[in-house]
Amino acid sequence: MIARKNIIAMLLGIELILNASALNFAAYTKFVNNNLDGHILSLFIIVIAAAEASVGLGIVIRFFQLRESIHIDDAATLQN
């Protein structure tokens, strides 16, 4: 199945979802109304996806240094 418990695979999925929504906004601009607000929203979605990717991967690398794992089941506690 497509359900994953790998943190990086989950981040890849989040990137795909954000990309789909941005493409949806751009298509809305093209086909329904033709002011450029949809493009602006797509631009902000791309910005937010980039920020999310940087912070998420920082967390993943830190987590790997602590636990030697990137499996989501190992992230069950807030503190050591």
């Binding site: 990309n19 791309i46 980039a50 991967l57």
Partner: peptide
């Protein structure tokens, strides 16, 4: 669909930044 600036931004941000970052993270975590 006529969004040229968005296409350029997509290429620069995702292909240049996010995917490279992902590859680094995957390699760093083994």
């Amino acid at each position: 669909i006529g969004a040229d600036f968005l296409a350029a931004t997509q290429l620069v941000v995702y292909a240049g930044g996010v995917v490279i970052l992902m590859l680094f993270a995957i390699m760093l975590t083994g």
